[in-house]
Design a protein around this nucleic acid. Structure first.
Lengths: 211, 211
DNA sequence: GAATATAGTTGCACATTGCCACTATTTGTG
DNA sequence: CACAAATAGTGGCAATGTGCAACTATATTC
């Protein structure tokens, strides 16, 4: 029989606010690291959770009162030293939401973090890197927007995630080629100028290059 | 206190043999699934293992007598039903080796698997997909060759992993651009014709697009 | 020394991308 | 009611990248 291992899930919940990626952090209500900032997370409940993804959804439901439109497994972080209670493994997940859904959570810039509990700073860094990389070949950033959006809005989001200016014409051509959007017939978003066509994601819009 | 979770590592050890990806499988010496084919794996030893990667290396050392030149974490597979002993999580790793190093292991085509224990068929499928995807933009297949190799040998390997013919000229141009090889000055491999320049990987030759 | 087999390079047609100018449709203003 | 302003959306072309094939280079064999 092997010695006891602590099994947890943590979630890097990201959104785009003030033109940059921000992560949801909570003050830990109890030891270890009581009072310090940490990712939402918790033990895996073998009785309740179908798998670790279900545990991640449960944590978000209980602690953040939301169900994200996008969630994927990022990887497992393990070792004797990352949790003072003992040898632990955290299966880290990455989730994306729109910023408007949740007004009452505390957001922090993913690239300018305060001191975090455990090894959570590494998990946030890994998640931000993953989002940026995956954004260059997938529809991932669309999950940072409401379900319907204009191409200009989408371009702005991509540009902020990738941290670089994007050409309108090339961007739209690429979207056409990749073919993961669908036009919503007759739906437009009118600002004070010419109204823009609304789009939404087709099913299966995020390709997984890794697993 | 949460209910007990079984924490294991499994390794999808891949090589290229008979022009296709093959995976190392072992007959399980004990229950569960006694006598059936399975991936090399085992419990995480909290006393000995620095982290799950160390556990994966230990498993390969103990069960396969080797240390692979390449190993990465693939992902965690979890749930109540995958192991009859109870709710379990397996942190699956992917490792690559040259086929010649290990003559006494049993290899099976990754795309034509026999019946496997646990959910190991899914793990092998995930690993094979990852290797193929990652091969299109990284030096990964080079780990399926000895430390030094010719460009023609490398091209053959890439072509077999990707399952498609590759143009010699375009292939070499891409290698030059990506710049992860270094020429070994004065080292040639002579067949019965013109000898070929030998190369080896520079450090950090595999980019991780994901973590 | 000519045939042959593999290593390695060069040049060009074709496809893809980045860039910029153009048209289209709305609101606001005299 | 014309026209300026602002954003949406398209089209065309130069520059860059890729696929393909012919070419040169260097070894062995007979």
């Amino acid at each position: 029989m092997p010695a006891q291992v602590i099994v947890t899930v943590d979630v890097v919940l990201l959104t785009l606010k003030d033109e940059r990626l921000q992560v949801a952090l909570m003050k830990r209500p109890q030891d270890p690291f009581k009072g310090e900032l940490a990712l939402p997370g918790g033990y895996v409940h073998a009785e309740d959770d179908a798998d670790v993804a279900a545990a991640a959804y449960r944590v978000l439901r209980d602690k953040m009162k939301l169900r994200p439109p996008y969630l994927e497994q990022l990887g497992s972080f393990s070792g004797a030293r990352r949790d003072p209670r003992g040898w632990s493994i955290s299966v880290c997940h990455l989730a994306l939401v729109t910023p408007d859904v949740i007004a009452d959570t505390h957001w922090f810039p993913a690239d300018k973090l305060p001191r975090l509990a455990f090894d959570h700073a590494s998990l946030v860094a890994a998640a931000a890197t993953r989002v940026r990389n995956k954004s260059s070949y997938s529809a991932l950033p669309a999950y940072l927007l409401p379900e319907t959006f204009t191409l200009s809005e989408l371009q702005t989001i991509y540009s902020q995630v990738l941290g670089e200016a994007l050409e309108k014409s090339s961007f739209r051509r690429k979207l056409r080629d990749l073919d993961f959007l669908e036009e919503i017939p007759g739906a437009f978003k009118g600002g004070k100028q010419r109204p823009a066509q609304l789009y939404r994601l087709k099913g299966m819009a995020v390709f997984d290059r890794t697993i």
